[in-house]
Design a protein around this nucleic acid. Structure first.
Lengths: 233, 233
DNA sequence: GCCGCACACCTAGTATGCAAGCGTGCCCCC
DNA sequence: GGGGGCACGCTTGCATACTAGGTGTGCGGC
């Protein structure tokens, strides 16, 4: 019985190589939960579904394994990683370490243009909130954190945090459709932004750390709600 | 004119897949400077030199590009990245952020067995110092930092730091043959270890941060000595 | 009816072949 | 003699073919 819903859309041709497009498409499908944890993937099936050969699919999967999003078992198959409490804790640790270090720097060197950009992002988040547009809010949330890291002068912090963040993103996606959380998160963004604007590294770090830990507070309820997505360990 | 010294040894067969062995061999050759910055690599040459096909070579190179150790230019070639001041700063930032966060945790939860292990590593470093064995010291230095991260409960910190660390490792390799630095580094390891043993997160973080920044103090002299290894920017 | 073995299918790993693009060097023209 | 243009060879990117190994299934024996 072939899997029923392997419809993964590739972005427009010619933007980046095939490998990058396949990676993006797969990662998006994974974090959005369209490829549910535990499912078996096959290079052949993915290649056919995406209309490309096995080679770029394979290379994308290898990269996703580095992200701990899939597990490749030789001669057996490739599986969507179940959400592991340990992996979530690791992702949280990495993200806190990198982003908190970044924001301390950002608070010391942020310019007016960057502050305006951050404020604009938060304003757009208000709009998304008003329109109950979860997907848009998600994009803007990433944009906010990315802009913060960029302001630190070490944009790499965001690249690494995002790649290490797979398990956490899936949890967030599951938790997001609770409207009140969106409002809380925007408030926290404002608190972070104010501290950065005040050039107060300690307060900025504290606000960001609190913000980043919010997601953990709902982890257990998510797990109770979707136990099949989690590994036992 | 074919490159003269593409003799890269592969580790024993059957340990990990071919891709992993090729990656390890190439990375080792890169950080050791046997493949000097700016050099052009060719998938074909590497595959021939290593006695494997292009496929695992290609996948290893893609991963090394993620590490910023090589630059792949389509239809042109793959080049050993020159050491970039910006990339060194990024690597330093990432390593500081991850390891300092890890050691704070480690100071709060380290067990006696782990302390003994750390002490044993430092003792071995003394031996390497006495024997002027730079390579051995290098391995033991990595082991010390890895053990610290493991003691934090987030071994992933070491994995990520090490992967992001390519540019920094090359600098360290160039700077290492100065014997007095080895003694200083061991002293700093001791200071870090004492603070962890005393369960003092603040002092541990401070000692580690100071230790990690030592390498930067010699960066400019290294650059003056080997300008051909560095990018202009 | 149940347990064990063997076969067939499917998997990822690897090797090789083909296509497209860029750089370089030679050759022709001015 | 100098400059412009074309063609060749090299590169990586992608597609395809082949290999080795593991799993599950179905059949045969008990």
């Amino acid at each position: 019985m072939p899997p029923p819903d392997l419809r993964i859309a590739l972005a427009d041709r010619a933007r980046g190589g095939t490998r990058q497009r396949v990676y993006d498409a797969l990662r998006d499908a994974l974090v959005a939960g369209r490829l549910e944890p535990g499912r078996r993937l096959s290079e052949n099936e993915l290649a056919e579904a995406l209309g490309v050969s096995r080679t770029p699919v394979r290379e994308a999967l290898v990269r996703l394994r580095d992200d701990r999003m899939v597990e490749i078992v030789p001669q057996l198959g490739t599986f969507v990683s179940k959400i592991s409490i340990g992996a979530v804790a690791d992702a949280q640790f990495v993200r806190e370490a990198l982003e908190c270090a970044a924001i301390r720097l950002a608070a010391g060197r942020v310019g007016d243009a960057e502050l305006l950009q951050l404020q604009a992002i938060v304003a757009q988040q208000d709009e998304a909130h008003a329109g109950h547009d979860f997907d848009r809010f998600f994009v803007l949330d990433d944009a906010f954190h990315e802009a913060l890291c960029e302001a630190s002068g070490h944009g790499i912090a965001w690249s690494l945090a995002q790649r290490a963040d797979g398990h956490l993103v899936r949890v967030r996606r599951l938790s997001l459709p609770v409207p009140e959380y969106m409002g809380e998160m925007i408030d926290e963004h404002r608190a972070v932004l104010e501290a950065v604007a005040a050039r107060d590294p300690d307060r900025a770090e504290e606000a960001l750390r609190h913000h980043l830990r919010m997601v953990l507070s709902v982890l257990e309820s998510i797990r109770a709600e979707h136990p099949e997505f989690f590994a036992e360990a």
